[in-house]
Every structure is written in structure tokens, then in C-alpha cells.
Design a protein around this nucleic acid. Sequence first.
DNA 1: GCAAATTTTGACCGAATGGACAAAGGTTAG
DNA 2: CTAACCTTTGTCCATTCGGTCAAAATTTGC
Lengths: 211, 211
Amino acid sequence: MTSPAGLKRTRIQQEKREVILDAALEVFSAHGFRGSTIDQIADAAGMSKPNLLYYFRRKEDIHEALLKRLLDTWLAPLRELDNVGDPLTELRGYIRRKLEMARDFPRESRLFANEILQGAPRITPMLEGELKTLVDEKAEVIRGWMRDGKIVRTDPWHLIFSIWATTQHYADFDVQVRAVLGPNRGGEGRFEDAARYLEQLFLDGLKPRTT
Amino acid sequence: MTSPAGLKRTRIQQEKREVILDAALEVFSAHGFRGSTIDQIADAAGMSKPNLLYYFRRKEDIHEALLKRLLDTWLAPLRELDNVGDPLTELRGYIRRKLEMARDFPRESRLFANEILQGAPRITPMLEGELKTLVDEKAEVIRGWMRDGKIVRTDPWHLIFSIWATTQHYADFDVQVRAVLGPNRGGEGRFEDAARYLEQLFLDGLKPRTT
DNA sequence: GCAAATTTTGACCGAATGGACAAAGGTTAG
DNA sequence: CTAACCTTTGTCCATTCGGTCAAAATTTGC
């Protein structure tokens, strides 16, 4: 088997595939799948188009490899959510980790958002399988906390959705966030502000304790 | 002036432009700008491509008209947020209205999300101008409520972001939400579940009141 | 009812794009 | 050193897509 599709990869193949995937992440996350061209990716990767197509036969193969590699990283924070330790501390930690991912891996977040927005044509099976299983499992953990009176009784699934939504917002809607905050408050400090705000929201809500 | 670009529109022009915009909303919101073709839109509008191009000279003109028409509708709920009435009731109403929009106008939400995800190439001026002004104004209203002790002291801007994020999530990430909830809980009732959950989250948070 | 204006269509064009291919240029193991 | 294998490139091709145009069909104003 002389083709790169084979399982045995040479040193050069491993290196170049990495370079290509990184370039493709940059391009795909900024323009979406259809909006990106092989030429753009090849440019960003510093190689010619035929050369790139030697490592990935089709444009879609790059996208697929990217999504595959992304998913593990992306679900890691939720996997860590466990019922050892104080529930509120666990949740706070999860929110913090997700927010850090939005800050440190915005391209990954946008790639994922793009895919879901288009109707998840390539990862629906994964959403209904692996992801659903994981979420159901963690929802059960959260329900345990509610039974023990450690957190208020509410809907565990929507709780998880709200954590996803609020944290990923800072990656996916970054342009809007920065535009609205303006030059002063829109700098790097926005993530710490967001962290403080979200912690307060999720723990105490907005209603004053002293009525 | 015989062209449709002129300000005086015939009956047919008004009707057909509406048909086209509706078809374009369907297509653009599902595939993004680059991912959509004029042929697709023409098909969805039930007319030939040259005929469509008689009403909108360029693909981008359709997109622009769509965004323009969208923005007023989109910001209406925030405009309604006023400091007459009880602050908590006002906020609850805003959240409910935004969630209803996610339910009733998911295509509009996705069109907007697509635009922001791509870096808002066509509406950055609006974000930095009109939108920022409106948000700053409402943030001041919210700050007033905080001074009066009606709601807890926190960051008004991030508060608004969190409402946007949590509600629009149900339109933009709908595929994922339904996949995770599964066939039973993922039906139409998901919006009422979300409404109940979000109300609880924003008002009381997750920490039990009785420590 | 008819002339002027508007609307619709089929045919066509150039540029962009995904991808194929063979030949040239490097690398590596024995 | 060399033969086998791997990598890179220039060239080319078919398709798709945004957009044009002139002519035909229809609607409108009088």
C-alpha cells in the first residue's frame, strides 16, 4: 500500500498531515466548509494544491479528519464532570473549563458551530450516539445531586445546554461580543469578566437574597 | 427608471421580491452565504435564475436585503425592555420573548448566527453602531435596577450576552438539542421545558436557598 | 384594443473550483 | 551507490456558479 490512506504513515506524512489539518482548521472555521477552497488551505499550509491532495484525496476528507480529531478534545471537559467532590464546585469547574476552551480554542468551537448550524450533515450519528449517551450519563449524576439537595431541582439536560450556550458564545459570537463591549471593555479581560458573571449567574441567579 | 433598483415598485415587483426573500431566507439559513447558489434560491422561489436576477441584480443584494429586514425584528425584544414595571418581571419577559423568537423564527436566528460566525463581514458597522448603542442604553437601565437593589449587582453586558446565548441556542443548535434530548423529550415540549429551566436559572441560580 | 412598459426565458459566457495525472525531484534501505 | 519508494509540481480537465443578453411573452395605461 503506497497511498497515504494506508495505516502506516511515514515521518513526512505525519508531519505534513498535521500542518494541513492546522491550516484547514484556520480556513474552515473562518469560512465554513463550502466557503473554503482547497487553494486557500494549501496556501495556508505552505504547499501546492496537488501536493495537499496527495495527503488528503478529497476536500471532504480533510474536514472529516478535523471533526474527528476535534470531538475528543471538545467533550473532555464534560467527561471530567464527576460526582466526587462538592457538586457546586464541580459545576463551577466545568463552567470554567468550558470558558477556557472558548478562549483558547475558538477555531475549534467555530468549526463545530458551523457544522451544527448547517444541520450537522456529517456528525448527526455521533450526536445521537456518543454525545447523547455521555450527556444522559452526566444528567443522571446531576439528578443525584438534586436528590441529595446539593443543588436545586431543575432540568439537568437544559442545565447542560445553558452551560454550553453561555460559554461557547464567547468563541462563536466573539465579533459581536467585542463590538458591543467596545475597545475598552472588549480586551482580553472580557473572559475574566465573563467568568465572574457566569459563576454568579449559575450559583445565585439574579434575584437578591434579601427580599 | 425601469429597473427594480428604483424606488417605485410595481405590484408584481413587491410580491416577487417577498417570495424571493422568503426563499433566500430558507436557503441561506441552511447553507450559509457561500454554501447557497442562486439556482437553489430560484428553485425555492419557483422561478428561473435570470428571472430572479431581474429582481435582485446580484446574489449579495439578496443577502443584504435579508439582513437589513432581519435586524429590526431581531432587536425588537430588547427595545421593549424598559424600566417601567418590576425589574425581575421585565427580565423574565425579555427571556420569554427571545425564546419565542428562537422557536418561531429559527431561520432568522441561523442567518444571523452564520453572519457573525463568519466574522460579520457585512454588518460589523451595525454591531459597533446601532447595536452597541442600544445595548449600552439597556445596560444603563439594568444598572439602575442594581442600584435600587432590585436585582443583584453584576455585569449588565454579560447578563445580556447570557440571555442571547441561552435562548438563541435553541434555534442555532436545534439539531444538537433534539439529538441529545432524543425522540421523547425532544418534541415540541422542549421549548416549554427550556422556558421553565431558564426562568429558574436566571432568577434563583442553582445553589439551594436553604444552606 | 393597442402601444408602451414590464416580466420571463433560453442560450450563453468567463471565472473559480475540485480534482486527475504523469513526469520530475528527493529519500531511504540495503 | 543504487534501486525502489516517496514526495512535489506543472499542466490540464470537467463542472459549477454568478451573471449577461436579446428576444419572446405578458401586463398595464390610455
